[in-house]
Simulated assay, not measured.
Amino acid sequence: MTADPTEKGPIHTARVPPSLLVLVTGGMGLSMFVLYAIGALGPFLIEDLEISSSQLGLLTAVTFGTATVLSLYAGQVADLLGGRRAFALLMVLVAADFALLIATRTYGFLLGALVLGGAAQSLANPSTNKLITTHVPPERRAVAVGVKQSGVPLAAFTAGLTLPALAAAMSWRAALALVIPVALAAALAAVLLPKDTGRSAKLRLALPAAPNPPTRWLMAVSLCIGCGLSALNTYLPLYAHQRLSMGERSAGALIAAIGVSGIASRVLWSRLSNRLDVPRSLLILTVASVVFGALLPAATGATWLVWVGAVGLGCSAAAANAVSMVAVTQGSGFGGTGHASALVSMGFFAGFVVGPVTFGLLVDTTGGFAAGWALVTAVFAVAGLCSWGGRRIVRDSV
């Protein structure tokens, strides 16, 4: 794989700075924390705000709908500001989002507050990938991206393990308030990083150029993966609580199970994608996602299957986006890192808009979860077909 020639930032060291890895990993986790918070706290939100399953899904859809639209510009913002400033802005947006969430008392206000969460998510991959391409040598970037992307399942693990217990002991608002000081501390740490000397002052915000064929292929795969993952993370605890009669804490722990398995799988598959190549890695992951996704509706007869399905999906579907980001940071055929990262993220976020809303409508109209889980399995299967069909295009780009 070759480095992206459009990146002009200097490589400051021959090894990956540990402090940088901690920062970008934490930043990815904080940017996505609201998604797992909605899933883990789903039973609390439905009871407190008296909302339906489809309204719960709309919370996720608003967040990622905003992220999808703003991803048109997020890559340019990261290229214009540089990774350091873009990352600091990301963390300030996360802190502001959670401050509004804990102040809300109505469902409508909650929807409005989540717009800021979408703005943060649109900047997450462009800013963190920009930091990596600036400060990490090309031969180490796959590992750095894998570690960085593990912050997302780490957020799932943390949310699923802690939020239900904290919400039961205090309130869901008090539980979410703990995120604010962490995000502000990360923003301060970003400001203290070395300045970005590769930042261009000539860039102006405008609609991005149409994605080239390899980027379009990654966007299509990311769209399907995002659709399935968002439905899974939003509704798995509710399904376990309502249909499998699991307690609120045990149901929330399923999100933690996805998270802990996803941490290792993202690092592992980011390494393997260098050997197996990106298309083959994505094909393996999507086929495995179909198999494990099919276990979830079967868990009504054997509850232990839901744990196997959750862990398996953390090892497969949750790792797919990390592999896509390896391709973007390593390959020269996708264009500038910030721009390409934003476009691929846009596809991923678009899936997060479609998945929860469609799943919630299926639950409300059918009165059960079977149709929703069929949707999840189907979109993972389509992702597998896209991985197979686009294998030559992307292989030539990385």
Rank of each mutant, 00 (worst) to 15 (best):
R275N: 09
S54M: 07
Q242A: 14
A256E: 09
W304F: 15
L268S: 10
G228H: 09
A371E: 12
L166N: 08
L232G: 07
R391N: 02
A206G: 13
V143H: 09
I46A: 09
A327I: 14
S265G: 00
L282R: 04
M246D: 04
G312S: 12
V306K: 01
L59C: 03
A169T: 03
V379A: 04
T215Q: 06
T162K: 05
L184G: 06
Y36F: 15
K130F: 05
C315I: 13
I11P: 08
A169P: 03
L282E: 02
F369Q: 08
A288H: 02
L166Y: 01
A96D: 03
A320T: 15
G108H: 00
L207T: 15
A74C: 00
F349K: 09
L282Q: 00
L244T: 11
G355Y: 03
T128G: 10
H339W: 03
G351Y: 14
M325I: 12
P211R: 11
Y73C: 02
A96K: 01
D97I: 00
G331M: 07
K8N: 08
I258G: 08
A240P: 11
T329Q: 10
T300Q: 14
L236W: 12
A264K: 06
H241G: 13
T329C: 09
A371C: 10
T66C: 07
G151C: 10
R243T: 14
A340Q: 04
S53Q: 11
R266W: 07
L131K: 06
Y239M: 08
K130V: 06
G9K: 04
G338Q: 01
I102R: 05
L41A: 08
P213I: 10
W217K: 05
R173S: 12
R271M: 13
S397Q: 09
I132Q: 07
A340W: 05
D4I: 07
G331P: 06
F334D: 03
L110W: 03
S230Y: 15
L296S: 02
P43N: 09
L100Y: 00
M325A: 14
L283N: 00
L20T: 01
V357W: 10
A370S: 14
G160P: 01
C315Q: 10
L81F: 12
R15L: 01
A174V: 13
A350M: 14
N321Y: 13
T13Y: 11
P214H: 12
C386V: 10
G335E: 07
Q55S: 12
T104R: 05
G27W: 08
M346V: 11
R266K: 10
A142I: 11
S273P: 12
A318P: 13
P194M: 06
A298P: 07
C315N: 13
G384E: 01
M32D: 11
L207A: 14
A144T: 08
G259K: 05
A61Q: 01
V34F: 07
V16I: 15
K8E: 08
V260C: 12
A168W: 05
K148P: 06
C224H: 11
